[in-house]
């Protein structure tokens, strides 16, 4: 009995210790972001609550990050919306209909999960220029479509899995009532697979929001997302830890809040990709 209690204590002790170590990087960034830079340079861990300040956030915002926020939201929300719309349509066909080349198209879509973005990166800029999607606000449309194309594998993989779980009897009932395929999708499959759609939306949001490479490469300075803004802020030669840390928290916050609010869906969505197969 005593040995048992010892094991349990050791288990919780080491888990707590590991968790604390795991949180060190986040705590570091958070602490530096809310302390005056003078305190940071004397060890942020000596800082006290009385020194708390939001000046770093104000400065990071006014010294450039503000202009990256709108592009980040436009690109992310746009990509999620287009992926949901086109992905749901296609996933219905993959899950519920038969057509020729179904296997081939599905396989092609899945390749986006393993092939690196770098394979489309180099000719993409001239190609978008040719399509007229490389200037002004048209850039948003360009990068949104690129994100949609590159996320198509995940979209179809996840959504068709969720759509497949909808009981056939319900669809048949809708069919007997004269519902078209579009009607079955709209009134039966989508409502029932809503949790799955939310899962996909969150994962896609996190994925697109966190992209650096495409935003850095395809967009001009006025349309780049926050991740690029943060990368530009980060320069070892400019000792501005306070601004960089505040910027990193700002970049991290939207996906993190989304995760905390909808944790259940996020984990569920990853299960769909992780456990099966």
């Amino acid at each position: 009995m005593r040995r048992n209690r010892l094991t349990v204590t050791a288990l919780y002790g080491s888990l707590t210790a590991a968790s604390l170590v795991w949180m060190v990087p986040m705590v570091t960034a958070l602490a530096i972001s809310v302390l005056p830079i003078g305190q940071t340079r004397n060890g942020w861990w000596h800082g006290g609550l009385s020194q708390l300040t939001f000046a770093n956030y104000r400065d990071a915002w006014s010294q450039g990050l503000a202009s990256y926020v709108v592009p980040s939201f436009v690109i992310t929300l746009g990509s999620v919306a287009v992926s949901l719309l086109l992905g749901a349509l296609a996933s219905y066909a993959f899950a519920r209909l038969e057509f020729r080349f179904k296997r081939l198209t599905y396989f092609l879509l899945l390749t986006t999960m393993i092939v690196p973005v770098q394979i489309i990166l180099i000719p993409l800029l001239p190609w978008l220029r040719l399509l007229g999607l490389a200037q002004g606000n048209a850039q948003y449309l360009g990068i949104i479509l690129v994100h949609t194309a590159f996320g198509a594998g995940w979209a179809v993989f996840m959504m068709s899995a969720f759509f497949a779980d909808v009981p056939e009897e319900l669809l048949e009932a809708a069919r007997l009532d004269g519902a078209s395929h579009l009607g079955q999708l709209r009134y039966v499959v989508l409502p029932l697979a809503l949790p799955g759609l939310v899962s996909f939306a969150i994962i896609d949001f996190v994925f697109v929001w966190n992209d650096l490479l495409l935003g850095l490469t395809l967009l001009d300075r006025d349309h780049q997302p926050l991740t690029v803004g943060l990368a530009n802020l980060q320069s070892p030669h400019l000792a501005q830890e306070n601004l960089v840390s505040a910027g990193s928290i700002m970049v991290v916050l939207p996906p993190l809040l989304l995760f905390i609010a909808l944790n259940r869906f996020y984990v569920r969505g990853l299960f769909a990709g992780g456990v099966k197969g």
């Binding site: 287009v82 349509l89 066909a93 057509f99 179904k102 092609l108 489309i120 198509a152 395929h181």
Partner: peptide, 23 residues
């Protein structure tokens, strides 16, 4: 009701068009 190849193509085409053009 279940098959319906033409509907299948119609549903897949928008995504495949984006996929083909941008990937």
């Amino acid at each position: 009701g279940k098959r319906g190849g033409r509907t299948g193509y119609a549903f897949v085409t928008p995504l495949m068009a984006v996929f083909a053009l941008f990937y």
